[in-house]
Amino acid sequence: MNKYLILCVDDEREVLDSVIQDLDCFEEHFILEAAESVQEAKALIEESRQEDIKLALILCDHIMPEQTGIQFLIELNQDMQTKPTRKLLLTGQAGLEDTVEAVNHSSLDFYIAKPWQGDELRNIVKNQLTTYMIENEMDLMPWASMLETERVFEAMAKHRLDYGE
């Protein structure tokens, strides 16, 4: 199986720790990293690229010191290597205008309001990772047991029909 990264970005350490704790169930199959700034996130993404690890999903806060989360997600969407990445905004402070900008630039796949519920966050992340794998991974069978099984099997069946395999 290819290596994939889930990256969580928030400038508040307690929030970041809480998100990582809620998502630690994905660590068996994904690399789970945390960054306290956009600069740190960019360094982790570059490091992953060099190790041929794809950024499958980024969960990003909006209000951060050097660059907003939405600006960062738009930037990632303009890079061909991170365009397929599922982009989630986890914030309590993004205004409607900022959110609309992200949606209009196709840079936001899901919006999660703070405070969040752990089960809800895990389900959203599982759904987004399933979408990512269906769109970007040829061999879906290894992912069937850990992601949304029914959707993975439907995609495999469709792939067989489309390509006559």
Rank of each mutant, 00 (worst) to 15 (best):
D79L: 13
E47G: 08
L73D: 01
L108N: 10
T82L: 07
L88V: 14
G118A: 15
I134K: 06
E47S: 09
I31K: 12
F30C: 10
S107T: 04
G95C: 01
A102Y: 00
L73W: 02
V9H: 02
L23P: 09
E97W: 01
K42D: 13
E28S: 13
L73C: 09
D17I: 06
V38T: 08
L129G: 10
D79Q: 06
K83M: 13
K42W: 08
K126S: 14
I112D: 15
D11W: 01
R49T: 08
E28H: 05
V9Q: 00
K87H: 06
Q78P: 03
L108H: 04
V9C: 06
Y132A: 15
I20C: 09
C8M: 08
C8W: 00
D22M: 12
Q21H: 05
L96R: 03
H105A: 15
I74E: 02
V19D: 08
E51C: 14
T68K: 00
E75A: 11
E66D: 14
E12F: 07
F30V: 11
A94K: 02
L96H: 00
L44N: 12
V103K: 00
M64C: 11
I45H: 06
Q128Y: 00
D10R: 00
Q128V: 02
Q81G: 04
L44H: 04
G95Q: 03
A56T: 07
H62A: 08
Q67M: 15
E101L: 14
E14D: 12
L108I: 14
K42N: 06
V100H: 04
L90Q: 00
H62N: 11
V15E: 11
V125D: 10
E40R: 02
I134R: 04
T130R: 01
H29K: 10
E40V: 10
E47T: 13
K42E: 15
A102S: 08
K54D: 14
D17Q: 06
L32T: 05
I6A: 13
E66W: 01
L57Y: 09
E101Q: 09
F110G: 13
